[in-house]
Amino acid sequence: MLPPVMAGVDGSAESLAAAEWAAREAARRSRPLRLVNAWNQQPHKGAGLSAAAAQRYLARRALRQGEDRIRRTCPGVKVDAEQVEGPATGALLHAAEQAELLVLGSRGLSGFTGFVVGSVALGVVARATLPVVLVRAGEEASDEHLPADDGCPSTRTGYQDVVLGLDLGDPCDEVIEFAFEAARLRGARLHVVHAWQEPSPLGLGPGEIGLVNGPEQADEWLGFLDAVIKVWRDKYPEVEVVETVAEGRARSVLVRAATGASLLVVGRRTTERAAGPRTGPVTHAAVQHVGCPVAVVPHE
């Protein structure tokens, strides 16, 4: 059986939007969809059988809501559902071990105020070994597409850009390939973005790009970006690519670039630090402030 696209559902508006997005992604990838609800049998000390029974009922109801929504909006997608027991973060990660992609909801407020990401979503993103996509409440199928000629939302038009935030100091193949494949599946343009800042004179080494002036630095970075992406252009000749290097903080550059995108792709290093698993400041800023779905791709 092909690895499924998996979505965590809990009955909330954001999780149902995530389930619907996951169904569309499953259709694009020709994969089945699996809906998962994680629940604790004893979430509070002293909780009795009645509390556990109530949780089981709520879990079943959340899964039914998700299945009903998928069958209504994406009737061609094969969908199944399961309940998993345990603390939500660990249970979702365990359930997703055989999945191709995990999709979770975030309490999106708007494109301006961004995500209010819950502890479960952040915990999963920080520890996952597979790509995780965060979807805000209110995400619609038409949000992925260009507006119609009259300016109205449509699902009959082409897709908005897929945006890849690329760190040229650590250009990881897993992240780049995910973005190219996402663009290919959508027939979308891929917008590759790198942010750079003037280095401190104390941090310069021999031959560093920072030894030249601003405009020349931008040209150097663009040449480096083009060289990194060339092999992927050759591998995905059907994907139109546009490259941008912008001076500024990476988190600010990415938030601006992702405005109106169908998907933002960023990476997360899996190497644990002394403080434990973390998302990293740029990825954390992206999932907090970007309005479109955000794919976080782990890499070593």
Rank of each mutant, 00 (worst) to 15 (best):
L2P: 12
L2A: 08
P4N: 02
P4F: 00
V5C: 12
M6Q: 04
M6G: 08
G8V: 06
D10Q: 04
S15I: 09
S15D: 09
W21Q: 01
A22Y: 05
R29S: 08
S30H: 13
S30R: 11
R31Y: 06
P32V: 05
R34W: 03
R34H: 12
V36S: 06
N37P: 06
A38E: 01
W39T: 04
Q41W: 08
K45F: 10
K45E: 14
A47E: 07
G48I: 03
L49V: 09
A54D: 07
Q55S: 09
R56Q: 12
Y57E: 14
R71F: 10
T73F: 15
C74K: 14
G76V: 10
K78H: 15
A81E: 10
E82Y: 04
E82N: 09
G86W: 02
A88K: 10
T89V: 15
G90W: 09
A91Q: 07
L92K: 05
V103L: 05
L104G: 01
G105N: 07
R107V: 08
G108A: 02
L109K: 08
S110I: 09
G111D: 03
G111Q: 05
F115R: 15
G118D: 04
S119D: 07
V120I: 05
L122R: 07
V125C: 10
R127D: 04
R127I: 07
T129L: 14
P131N: 09
L134Q: 03
L134K: 04
L134N: 02
G138A: 04
G138H: 03
E140L: 12
E140Y: 13
D143K: 07
H145W: 13
A148Q: 01
A148T: 03
D149V: 07
S154A: 14
R156T: 14
Y159V: 12
D161S: 11
V162L: 09
L164Q: 00
L166C: 05
L166R: 03
L166Q: 03
G169K: 08
P171G: 02
E174A: 12
F178A: 03
A179M: 04
A179R: 00
A179N: 01
A179Q: 01
A182W: 01
R184Q: 15
R184Y: 07
G187Y: 02
A188E: 00
A188Y: 04
R189A: 11
V193Q: 06
H194A: 04
A195R: 01
E198G: 10
E198D: 10
S200L: 10
L204C: 10
V212N: 10
V212E: 07
E216H: 13
E220G: 09
G223W: 04
D226R: 14
A227M: 13
I229K: 01
V231H: 12
W232P: 03
R233Q: 12
D234W: 06
P237S: 08
V239G: 02
T244Y: 14
V245H: 00
G248T: 11
G248Q: 12
G248R: 08
A250M: 13
A250D: 02
R251H: 15
V255A: 06
A257Q: 02
G260T: 07
A261P: 05
A261F: 01
L264W: 06
R268S: 00
T270P: 05
R273E: 15
G276P: 10
P277K: 11
G280D: 05
V282H: 03
T283Q: 02
H284T: 14
A286N: 06
A286W: 00
V290G: 00
V290L: 01
A295F: 11
V297W: 00
H299W: 06
